[in-house]
Structures are given as structure tokens and as C-alpha cells.
């Protein structure tokens, strides 16, 4: 799959797994997990890390040659998110930003109105904007229209591990999007990310599922395999689901009882 690249704002990545660092119990454990995940792009909360301080998670990423994706975690308003993104760009010299504007601390769900406004401002300001969004096809479309380089819908709330609660919306989002769709938040285990990729996501972003697993390094390997498996399955093209069995060896003269593709 050397030629099957994830392209975000003109940058190409051979890994489709974007990692987060939140929840890691220590830098060593995190480093092993990042290596195992094969990630080439990892997000860091700019409000919790000072790029000028040596020895932080940013040093780990630098050592591993992983590109930093600054995020605006903890912002409740478009104004704060824009300010945080600009400070990150200044500090890290990257125009990439994972845009998060949350509505409240209890659900950590995105505030769609603030998000859209911040996205528009940042795109105008020359950022490559990757917005963390609700699994809302309309909002995803609007984010794409204002110039976001990808849309990153949540499968379920951040850190919940509840997987993709509304696969139908993901299908709608993927169907309409002309930018990469990346599952952001909600993955709990390898099958969740495989499902995301089978649904047509271009990548998966996760943190807690790995950093809070009993064995983060092994879970990172599982996630990597899950992403690759799902991607391959998507590209290979799954068989249409059927109500009744169909023998793998042909049975001559068998009637086709239901030619319509059943609802998935």
C-alpha cells in the first residue's frame, strides 16, 4: 500500500492513524505506543504544552520524526480557538491545526456554531484546518465549504470508547465529502477503527483507546492493524449482505428470492 497515501492540506502520510497524547501515564509508555502505532502525525493540546520547554511530549515526537498536529483543546469560543491556533503556529511553525471548540465540559461535544466560525476565520488566515465535528452531515458539508482540509466527525464522545454510534451518518458524510473524513473520538477497540475505515473514512484519530488501555503498546499495534484491515477491506469491496445463505460452491438452478440489496 505504498502508494495509498493520506493527503491532508498538501502533506502525504502513509499511515492513516493519527494519534493523540492525552491520557498517557508517562512519556516512555507513550513513546512505545506511538512507535507501535506507526503514526506519522500526532496531536498535542497547545494549552497544555509549552513548545519552548525541552523534554515534553513534543521532544518525544521530534525524536520519533512524527509531525505535530497542534489542537485547540479546552477552547469554548471561536475567539479562544483562533487565538490558540495562532499562538501554536507562531510557536511550532506549522499551519496545521486540529480545531476543537467544545460546548461544555461534561460532554465535550463540539459547539457547531463556534466551530464553523473559527474554521472560517482560520482558513482565511491560511491555516490547514482539521475540525473535530459532530457526526452531522450538514455541518460536515459546511465545514468543507468554508475550506477545511478534512472533516473529523466523532464516533461517540471523547474518551467514551463507545465506537461509532451512528454509522449511517458516517456513510452520508463520506458519500458527500470531497475532503478526507477522519473518525475523531469514540474508538474503543480495533474493530471500531476497522469499521470506520470500512465505512470509507480516510483515517482514524484516537488517543484514549490506546493511552488508557492496560497495554498501550499492544493496543497501538491492534489499532494500526485495525486501520489497515479496514482500509484494505474498503478498497477490496465487500460483498453485498444477504438475508439467506449462499453456498460458496454454485448450486445449479437456484432461484434468486430477493434480488434487491437488503437494507444494511
Amino acid at each position: 500500500m505504498a502508494d495509498d497515501l493520506l493527503v491532508l492540506g498538501g502533506r502525504s502520510f502513509s499511515s492513516r492513524l493519527i494519534m493523540g497524547t492525552g491520557g498517557a501515564t508517562g512519556l516512555e509508555v507513550l513513546e512505545r505506543a506511538l512507535v507501535a502505532s506507526g503514526t506519522e502525525l500526532t496531536t498535542v493540546a497547545m494549552r497544555r504544552v509549552d513548545p519552548s520547554v525541552h523534554g515534553s511530549v513534543l521532544s518525544v515526537l521530534e525524536r520519533l520524526g512524527i509531525e505535530v498536529l497542534p489542537n485547540t483543546a479546552g477552547c469554548f469560543t471561536a475567539g479562544e480557538a483562533v487565538l490558540t491556533a495562532r499562538l501554536a503556529r507562531e510557536a511550532l511553525g506549522t499551519d496545521l491545526v486540529k480545531l476543537e471548540v467544545i460546548a461544555d465540559e461534561r460532554t465535550l461535544l463540539p459547539d457547531p456554531i463556534e466551530l464553523l466560525e473559527a474554521a472560517e476565520t482560520l482558513v482565511d488566515d491560511g491555516f490547514t484546518v482539521l475540525p473535530y465535528t459532530n457526526d452531522d452531515p450538514v455541518l460536515a458539508r459546511k465545514l468543507e465549504e468554508v475550506g477545511c482540509a478534512a472533516v473529523m466527525p466523532l464516533g461517540s464522545p471523547i474518551g467514551s470508547g463507545l465506537g461509532i454510534r451512528n454509522p449511517h451518518n458516517f456513510r452520508l458524510i463520506v458519500e458527500h465529502a470531497r475532503v478526507p473524513v477522519i473518525l475523531d473520538a469514540g474508538a474503543g477497540t480495533a474493530s471500531d477503527v476497522a469499521l470506520a475505515m470500512e465505512l470509507g473514512c480516510a483515517g482514524v484519530m484516537l488517543a484514549s483507546a490506546v493511552t488508557r488501555a492496560r497495554d498501550p503498546e499492544r493496543m497501538a499495534s491492534a489499532m494500526r492493524a485495525g486501520v489497515e484491515a479496514g482500509r484494505l477491506a474498503r478498497l477490496a469491496g465487500r460483498i453485498p449482505p444477504r438475508y439467506f445463505a449462499e453456498a460458496s460452491s454454485p448450486v445449479e438452478g437456484r432461484a434468486v428470492l430477493d434480488p434487491e440489496r437488503p437494507a444494511f
Binding site: F76, T77, E114
Partner: peptide, 10 residues
């Protein structure tokens, strides 16, 4: 209000 003061809560 928020146009005047963008950092006000949504």
C-alpha cells in the same frame, strides 16, 4: 454582544 466581545461565552 459576541461580535463586540468575541471571547464572551457562546
Amino acid at each position: 454582544c459576541r461580535r463586540l466581545e468575541p471571547l464572551l461565552a457562546p
